[in-house]
Design a protein around this nucleic acid. Structure first.
Length: 179
DNA sequence: CCCTGATTCGC
DNA sequence: GCGAATCAGG
């Protein structure tokens, strides 16, 4: 199913923008979706984008590129800058800092231990519960994020749901579905 | 342990 | 061309 995502022009343009914006490969991968940070890094190298401008170096690739004949890499850099300056409806989404999903104001939600943190894939750590919350195809998709049981991918709460004994499972009609 | 980019190499 | 595995480093 989720096919169709590859290095389309749009995705490459977005990759360029974010990379030269200083975003890390993993963050870019998360925003692009469907690719790992390795894929991003690999692509970056294939595009000749490796090595980003450091604080102390020239940040005037445009004028420099416009002044004299330049290597392919520099031309590509110039193109990327132009693309970055032009309004780009398709990629603008990437600049939105946070998904701004309603964190329950809940004054009265003193649930037991640290329960659901609702984290995005970006904030999901190895030791965090990977129980999915919501529709993976929408931006509001999150993972539980609570502390997971050592050796298991879920927190105590979700592990109970995930690992119900066959017998119990029958009775416990889908108790707490995917919410 | 968390993370970073770089490189290799089978596909 | 692609990207997982791996490497090297913070």
């Amino acid at each position: 199913m989720e096919a169709g995502l590859s290095w389309t022009d749009e995705r490459v343009a977005l990759l360029r923008r974010l990379w030269e914006d200083g975003q890390s490969a993993s963050k870019i991968a998360a925003q692009l979706g469907g690719v790992t940070r390795n894929a991003v890094i690999g692509k970056v190298h294939r595009l000749g984008l490796a090595g980003r401008a450091k604080p102390g170096e020239e940040a005037q690739s445009v004028s420099r590129a416009a002044r004299a004949p330049a290597p392919v890499a520099e031309i590509e850099t110039a193109i990327a800058v132009v693309e970055a300056e032009a309004p780009e409806p398709v990629a603008i989404v990437a600049h939105r800092p946070a998904p701004a999903f309603p964190p329950p104001p809940s004054p009265a939600a003193p649930t037991a231990l640290a329960v659901s943190q609702r984290v995005t894939i970006m904030d999901l750590r190895d030791s965090m519960c990977r129980w999915p919350l919501g529709d993976p195809t929408t931006p509001d998709f999150r993972f539980c994020g609570a502390r997971s049981i050592t050796g298991l991918p879920y927190c105590t709460h979700h592990a109970e749901i995930a690992y119900q004994p066959a017998t119990e499972r029958k009775r416990e009609r889908r108790v707490a579905g995917f919410r």
